[in-house]
């Protein structure tokens, strides 16, 4: 392996890291902080992707001159639509299940099946084409042998911005303080005067909105169809569980480690073997650290 290849593989690792992080941030909040096993996370990402699709169609028809900007509108719309859906989902279903976390698994799995079939009936059973904006076509030629695809660079940027915003929200605002208080001890937080039902609903909506952002931006790399969510859900859960539920930082580290492993294993082994090796390593780590790499020390 020469230096060029080394650089490109390192970039691949970085790219997979940011993709996994973007996928997992929303789930880390919903599952990690709130304890809701949200099996519909993947379908929320698909919903975000369809928002991008709809926005692209709208711009193509009515604002062809501004087509280059549709991606930002698509991402914003995806956030709004999925977080709104998340809010309604929390109010209508999830809030009755906080004391029965395993039942959230079944309920949200049902929601995921319903959403899949809705996409199939209302939009199309086939995959739809979401165009990549023209300024993200192609690659940045760093040196003669080294090039970095622009769409991946964009996702790296988006992931960093999103992660920073989530960090600021959770740790630097009063909202974040309330969220952390409620997730640590709902009863005490309520006694201290925090409106816990409201915080729950908004937190869940935030987690879902992040899924929407991820799904919307991944249209540049992968397919958009009724079963798109299924492509993401397993990886997303692995990242969150491996990093340690209840730890956002753990999720980010876990995404980094898995991203690097995937990049280098896929380079040296075949794709399927790489996948199997990663899963094996995750199992071994979870055997010795059942609460994940960065388990928070909490009193049970």
């Amino acid at each position: 392996m020469n230096l060029d290849m080394l650089a490109m593989q390192a970039f691949t690792g970085l790219s997979i890291f940011t993709i996994l992080m973007l996928m997992a941030l929303g789930l880390a909040i919903v599952f990690g902080l709130m304890g809701v096993i949200n099996m519909a996370h993947g379908e929320l990402m698909a919903m975000g992707a369809y928002c991008s699709y709809g926005t692209a169609l709208f711009f193509e028809r009515f604002l062809p001159g501004l087509m280059g900007l549709y991606i930002f509108v698509g991402i914003a719309l995806a956030f709004v639509v999925t977080s709104l859906f998340g809010y309604l989902l929390e109010r209508g279903l999830i809030r009755f299940l906080y004391k029965r976390p395993l039942d959230t698994l079944l309920a949200t799995w049902g929601v995921s099946l319903v959403l899949q079939q809705l996409f199939r009936q209302l939009i199309s059973a086939k995959e739809v084409e979401v165009p990549t904006v023209s300024w993200l076509h192609g690659a940045w030629q760093a040196t003669e042998g080294v090039s970095f695809p622009l769409s991946r660079l964009f996702i790296i940027g988006l992931a960093i911005v999103t992660a920073v915003l989530v960090y600021l929200l959770l740790f630097k605002t009063r909202w974040g303080l309330r969220i952390r208080a409620v997730t640590q001890n709902r009863a005490m937080a309520g006694a201290a005067g925090i409106n816990t039902t409201k915080v729950d609903a908004y937190t869940f909506a935030l987690g879902c909105g992040l899924a929407g952002i991820a799904g919307s931006s991944f249209t540049m790399l992968a397919s958009t169809g009724p079963t798109t969510g299924q492509q993401y859900i397993v990886d997303t859960f692995i990242v969150v569980v491996f990093g340690g539920v209840e730890s956002l930082l753990g999720t980010i580290f876990s995404a980094f480690i898995i991203g690097q492993m995937q990049s280098w294993f896929e380079y040296s082994l075949s794709g399927s073997m790489a996948r199997a090796s990663i899963l094996l390593l995750v199992i071994v780590v979870l055997y010795f650290r059942p609460n994940g790499l960065f388990a928070a020390k909490v009193r049970r």
């Binding site: 290849m5 490109m8 593989q9 691949t12 790219s15 997979i16 993709i19 695809p149 991946r152 790399l221 992968a222 397919s223 079963t227 299924q230 492509q231 995937q262 990049s263 896929e266 380079y267 794709g271 790489a274 996948r275």
Partner: peptide
Amino acid sequence: GHIEFSSEIN
């Protein structure tokens, strides 16, 4: 259903 081909492309 795999969606990450950048290593293979390298």
